[in-house]
Amino acid sequence: MAEPLLKVENLYCERDERVLFEGLSFEVGAGEVLQIEGQNGSGKTTLLRILSGLSRNYEGDLYWRGEPMAEVVDEYRQALLYFGHLPGVKATLTPQENLGWYAALQPGTDTASIDMALRQVGLAGYEDVPCHMLSAGQHRRVSLARLYLSQAPLWILDEPFTAIDKKGVAQKEQLILRHAAAGGTVILTTHHELRLGGLRRLNLDQLAGTS
């Protein structure tokens, strides 16, 4: 395997006096899908927030394409799509306006692809409806449309399938597979049984601190 995209070395994190993980090391390369597993409270979301750069309450080293993270943080952000618990969708804006803002935040995004992305998630015809008038599932799909819009190689997805119907889940699985096949990398958590070939798993329960 070539140089790993993202490398994690000796990661340590504690929260509320509890060690979530200690000495956690792993790496992911291009074309890989890594599922983070663990019970509720095992630190899945915390790990994803650390990997994305949102949370800084940890010790240990992160490397992006072999460089220490602190030195390449701008390149890293350009290559990252983070999909968290919070939808990141403004209720008073329309889906189109919401995605337009994401296009401005991520340089190199093609604004012409916004309509295409909305069609892909089944929101054609709702482009100009303020998001607070959409259903919860549709709201979620506005957020998911970012996956179609993005050209980032690394996706970090925290429970991407909540509030999505069966058909939507299958569609998202296909999307993840396609992304990996095209040389992209996906790190995700989910309660769904994923039916993906070549899926790697990382279980946090076995890593939990001993102290």
Binding site: D74, L80, Y82, P87, G88, V89, W101, Y102, L105, Q106
Partner: peptide, 14 residues
């Protein structure tokens, strides 16, 4: 902060 658009802005390379 509450709807998550803030964290997305912080993750932007802009």
């Amino acid at each position: 902060y509450e709807d998550g658009t803030l964290e997305q802005a912080l993750l932007s390379p802009q």
